[in-house]
Simulated assay, not measured.
Amino acid sequence: MTETLDKPAAASRIRKARPAKSAPDAPSGRVRTPGKAVLIVGGIPRADLLPVEVLVHRRQRATVRRAWLGVVVVAAVVALGVAVSAMDSASSATQLRSAQDEGTALLQQQGQYSEVRKVESRTALAEAAQTVGGAPEIDWSTYLTKAQGSLPEGVSIVGVTVDSASPLESYDQPTTPLQGARVATLTFEADSPTLPSIPDWLDRVRGLPGFVDANANSVTLDSNTGHYTVDMTVHINQQAFDGKYSEKTK
Rank of each mutant, 00 (worst) to 15 (best):
Q109R: 11
V73A: 13
D213G: 05
G29Y: 06
G111S: 12
S197Q: 08
S192N: 13
R97D: 14
A26P: 05
D222N: 15
R58E: 10
Y171F: 15
Y228N: 11
T220F: 07
D88P: 00
L208N: 01
T63E: 14
V56F: 05
T63R: 12
R30I: 15
T4D: 11
Y113G: 11
S98R: 00
G210P: 03
S89Q: 09
R65G: 02
H235G: 02
P193Q: 07
N217V: 15
T161C: 04
V234G: 01
T249F: 09
D139N: 14
V158D: 10
S246R: 11
A75Q: 05
M1T: 07
V74T: 15
T63L: 12
A26Q: 10
A10P: 01
T194L: 14
G180D: 03
L50P: 00
S89D: 11
G210T: 02
A37T: 13
A20G: 08
V230S: 05
S192C: 13
D48L: 02
V74K: 08
L168E: 13
Y143R: 04
W140H: 06
V183A: 03
R58W: 08
I138R: 03
P199T: 04
S121A: 15
P209H: 03
Q95S: 13
L5F: 04
R13T: 08
E247I: 04
A47H: 12
L144E: 09
D200N: 11
A93D: 14
A105Y: 04
A67E: 13
S121G: 11
I198G: 05
G111I: 03
P45A: 12
Q100D: 06
D88R: 15
Q179M: 07
D222F: 09
S170A: 15
E189G: 10
E120D: 15
K21G: 08
R15Q: 04
Q148Y: 01
L221G: 07
T249Y: 07
V183K: 06
S121F: 07
R30P: 03
A11P: 00
L96M: 07
D48I: 01
P193A: 09
P136F: 02
